[in-house]
């Protein structure tokens, strides 16, 4: 008797707890499934509609295409997407190379060397993170116009590099602080120069943070808009972000081809993300905690 009372006593709140728990789980699953669809479906919609004619789009934009018009993609490619993609690759690679080289040098000096005004210099570098590019835009435009930099790759590479240096230096410095200083001291005793220690000891050890910082900077440069809008005007130097806008304006009436162009412009980055999801997210979120 006492036994049964005890078990029923325990099972009652227990099962109620269970029911609440199950309901909770169902709600959470529903919420996350809905959010996932909202985040991913626009991309699927874009790719499906890239195969359609304009008429088909207006009648039912959620349906599968009646015929798969692959020619939309080749037409879009012919409008210059390939050139824009190439320009973006050139600008991104050059910028990231400059940023990683210079910021790893600065970080190295800030971590291992002693020199006057070190703290002030570090603050001056970090301060660059706060300033929005808008503030420097017109004066930079004037400089570009006065020199022959306007409408060249350098008009994009140089300012992009400058605006990415602070955060990259911050990330690499935070990582280098964790490298034991004895390594450098031992190498100095053996007569190695600072340049050699930086290149052969510190950079190899920093590979994970260099990869992350490089990825963060690359994404930033690849997606950059306001410099590309202001400092270049020829199709031969336009990056893909500006390319797709002029492209979209030119093809206002032909939605299928325009969507094919948009789809092509994001295909490289989308494919990389799908293959390397974990590394991508890991790399882009590094530095969230110190």
């Amino acid at each position: 008797m006492a036994d049964t009372a005890l078990t029923s006593d325990q099972s009652l709140p227990g099962s109620r707890f269970q029911a609440g728990e199950v309901l909770n789980r169902i709600v959470l699953w529903a919420v996350f499934l809905t959010l996932s669809v909202i985040c991913v479906y626009p991309m699927i919609w874009l790719f499906l509609n890239a195969f359609k004619s304009t008429n088909e789009l207006f009648s039912a934009s959620w349906a599968l295409p009646e015929t798969w018009r692959w020619e939309n993609f080749s037409t879009a490619w012919g409008y210059g997407i390939s050139r824009y993609l190439l320009n973006s690759v050139i600008v991104t690679v050059a910028t990231v190379a400059i940023v990683l080289t210079l910021s790893s040098m600065a970080a190295y000096a800030l971590v291992v060397m002693k020199f006057p005004a070190k703290v002030a210099i570090y603050m001056a570098i970090l301060g660059g993170m706060i300033l929005p590019p808008e503030v420097s835009l017109f004066p930079l435009f004037k400089v570009m116009a006065a020199t022959d930099l306007y409408n060249t790759y350098f008009a994009l590479i140089l300012p992009n590099a400058a605006f990415h240096l602070p955060f990259t230096t911050f990330l690499i410095r935070a990582y280098m602080v964790g490298i034991p200083p004895d390594l450098r001291e031992a190498a100095l005793v053996e007569g190695a120069s600072e340049g050699l220690i930086w290149r052969d000891i510190y950079l190899p050890l920093c590979r994970p943070i260099l990869a992350s910082a490089g990825l963060i900077a690359a994404m930033g440069v690849w997606n950059e808009f306001i410099f590309a809008l202001t400092f270049v005007e020829s199709d031969s130097v336009k990056t893909v972000t500006i390319g797709v806008t002029s492209f979209a304006v030119a093809l206002r009436a032909d939605y299928g081809i325009m969507m094919a162009g948009l789809a092509l412009s994001i295909l490289p980055i989308l494919a990389t993300f799908l293959i390397l999801q974990r590394q991508f997210i890991g790399g882009l979120t590094r530095g969230a905690v110190k």
């Binding site: 210079l102 040098m105 000096a109 001056a124 570098i125 300033l131």
Partner: peptide
Amino acid sequence: WVAPTLVFLVVFV
């Protein structure tokens, strides 16, 4: 070692 970074920041930012 920090000069290139500083030059970039002064000139472009």
